[in-house]
Amino acid sequence: MVEFRIDRRSGVATYLQIVQQVKQALRLGLLAPGDKLPTAKEVVAATAINPNTVLKAYRELDREGLVEARPGLGTFVRRSLARPQAAAGSPLRAELADWMHRAREAGLDREDVAALLASVLEEGFDGPPGTTGTAAHEAT
C-alpha cells in the first residue's frame, strides 16, 4: 500500500499529485504488479480530500494502463514503471554519478547542479513532468 501526501499549496491539481505519487512509487518499486491501491475511502480518511478526486486519479491511472479496477475488490497495479536501466549499479546511473563528481570538482554547488539538470531535462523531454505528455510517453 502507499500513503499519499497532498500539498494543497503546491498549485498542482490534487488528482495529479496522486497520479504522480503512484507513478513515483511504481518507478521506485514501492508498488509492484498485483499490489492493491488503497480504496478511495481509505485515502480520504487519511488526507481529507474529496473522494471524487481520488477516483478521478485512479481513472486516469486506469486509462494509462498502469492499474485496473476489479469491481467489488479494489484497484490493482497492472504493471511496474521500475526499469533495470535506472536501478542501482546500472551503467547509466554510474555515468551520472561520475558526472556529478566532476561537476562538484568544477566548483558547482547543489543549486547549480539542480538547475543544470533541469535545463538539460527540459531539452531532452518535451513538457514539464507529470503532464499528459509524459503520461502518453509512458503509456506507449
Binding site: 500500500m1 502507499v2 500539498d7 503546491s10 498542482v12 504522480q20 505519487q21 521506485l28
Partner: peptide
C-alpha cells in the same frame, strides 16, 4: 514537490 510515497503495511 516531494512525491515520495511511503510504504505502509498491508
Amino acid at each position: 514537490m516531494s512525491t515520495t510515497a511511503s510504504v505502509t503495511r498491508i
